[in-house]
Design a protein around this nucleic acid. Structure first.
Lengths: 328, 328
DNA sequence: GAGCAGGATGTGAACGCTAACAGCCATGTC
DNA sequence: GACATGGCTGTTAGCGTTCACATCCTGCTC
């Protein structure tokens, strides 16, 4: 920086002002500085800047298995929005989301000097870790806890599940079975709750939900069981991957979808439209979630007080394809 | 830090030594310092450290659409390996990989002070951007260019395609058709080349490959065309998502897989085992790729000279499921 | 023409850490 | 007992910025 200053015949401070678009710099001085910067190929050192401003312009993201479609899409949305706002994203991807892990990850990021943290951690255990955040650290949870000591951006899981269940009831099905997500997951719980409440609101019997863990295999196994049960005519599966597994099981058992069993998924992964048959499913707009996260977080950072905790709920969409049909 | 020093009755430098595991610190002094750190809840400031050491312990990752299974998995592997080595990962996810974009992303990361860069950019255009890297910036390309001015870690696409094609030939198919990936992609080219060379080595006719873009839709459209061609008995699809689309098209047209057409994919995404029928495919181990990237990059960073450029090729695996059968 | 506002620029310090060097003390050697 | 050795600790400077303040200059008002 001092090299640039010397070449342009100004002080280092003026160079700094040019770099930061300070208004009070004469335009010819500015031009001279920019010329010098260009000539020397100077790049400012953001680390030094971060040291003095105490702002790194880096946001930390803690997420569970970023290989999954949901987290991957959310992070993609977050990254796009962050970069647009001039922020970097530093990611920690966890294999297991127990509270200790999440806390370690946040510590790790804090030490690095992130300005805020986004936790994509839709599990109870992770949500618990969020209850004791380092004082004053701006944070946003995606699909997080219900407690109001941290801002939350989420997609309305209950509403999505209700949409799916109601769609099946509207088609004339007597009741709807459910292949659930893993118990510790908030999304799984929300979907379970939405399904149950839609059924109860319609005065229908609520069958025992089948356990699952998001994987196609779990869906397959649940599908095998359901295929043997004559009374089953409609199934709401907690995610598309399990729906694929169930579809596979039904095919193997000669159970026709949607003729004998109607099936609805959740997520609308890119593959869903090409399942056999194409899957009716609940769509989540992860881009919007990512954008909201950044909005909320930056607002928190700029207000720099603890502020109030926001709760942003994104409504899910519903995509009707060919895996559902009217009851016999 | 000086607070800690005062409380422990030592100098700030001794605190620094404890923090950095310097050998020459008496164990009771060390204990006293650790005690003070704990008591004050002190966290060291890595930004300040980065300023003086000129090492941020952050690695930049530039990638194309991190929503796709391949990139997402690679980045996951990279992140795990990096964290184990005590490095942070800063991600830039690009919507389009033209050279200017990639260069901008690298600039952006350089300014932030990353110690090295990993470019997950398997397109010709991106590879071109890698030819003019900032001097002295350690870098690794995943599936990158063939030119030897940057280290490369890749999975042997040619070999994978050969495996797939040969498997079909071994089953007695006269020749194998191919639904290709987008032309600009190095992986697509590798798979095309492997397929072609296997066919030529066996002295078979090489049909015109069908164009694709990795999406299920493209596979679906190609599948529709192939379904109408009686002479087609075996198809090698450049990735599993397109294979799913093709499968869908075949189902719609009443073409039985594997009875009438045998199908092989590439990637082994988690869904593949539950397609109808379960897909025979080429498996890529992205974890290993991620680990290799970090190894190569850290070696470059530590040697701090330009060093020699390494080229690490990971062999793909092959998973036989139910989408292939002997020719009629 | 004195006085003053405010734009443009420069000066010095500070951010929190590590590197380099200096100094102290106990131990061992001759 | 003098001296070297080496482990442990302290002192000082500096990394590349921005901040706060000081200074200079220009142009305006009365």
């Amino acid at each position: 920086m001092s090299d640039v200053a010397r070449l342009a015949g100004v002080s280092h401070q003026t160079v700094s002002r040019v770099l930061n678009d300070h208004p009070n710099v004469r335009s010819d001085t500015k031009a001279r500085v920019l010329e010098a910067i260009d000539q020397l190929g100077y790049r400012r050192n953001l680390v030094a800047r971060a040291l003095v401003t105490n702002r790194s312009r880096t946001l930390g993201v803690v997420s569970f298995d970023t290989t999954l479609y949901g987290p991957a899409s959310t992070i993609y949305g977050i990254e796009q929005a962050a970069r647009t706002a001039g922020y970097f994203i530093s990611i920690v991807s966890l294999k297991s989301l127990d509270a200790a892990n999440v806390r370690d990850a946040i510590d790790y990021l804090t030490e690095q000097g992130v300005d805020g943290v986004i936790v994509v951690a839709p599990q109870r255990s992770a949500a618990r870790a969020l209850e004791k955040l380092p004082q004053g650290l701006p944070a946003v949870a995606v699909e997080g806890t219900h407690r109001a000591n941290v801002s939350v951006v989420c997609i309305d899981q209950i509403e999505g599940a209700r949409l799916a269940t109601q769609h099946l009831l509207d088609l004339g099905h007597e009741t709807v079975w459910h292949i659930a997500g893993p118990p510790d997951w908030l999304e799984a719980e929300g979907r379970l709750e939405g399904w149950r409440s839609a059924l109860e609101a319609a005065g229908r019997q609520v069958p025992e939900p089948l356990p699952g863990d998001w994987s196609p295999r779990a869906g397959y196994e649940a599908g095998k069981r359901l295929a043997g049960m004559d009374e089953v005519t409609a199934v709401f599966v907690a995610n598309d991957q399990m729906a694929l597994g169930a579809l596979r099981a039904f095919t193997e058992e000669g159970v026709k979808v949607p003729e004998r069993i109607s099936l609805v998924g959740f997520d609308d992964i890119p593959e869903s439209a090409f399942f056999s048959p194409p899957l009716t499913t609940v769509r989540q707009d992860f881009d919007i979630v990512g954008r909201h996260c950044i909005d909320v977080l930056l607002r928190q950072i700029d207000s720099s007080g603890p502020g109030t905790y926001e709760r942003l709920v994104v409504r899910p969409g519903f995509v009707v394809r060919s895996s559902t049909s009217p009851a016999r």
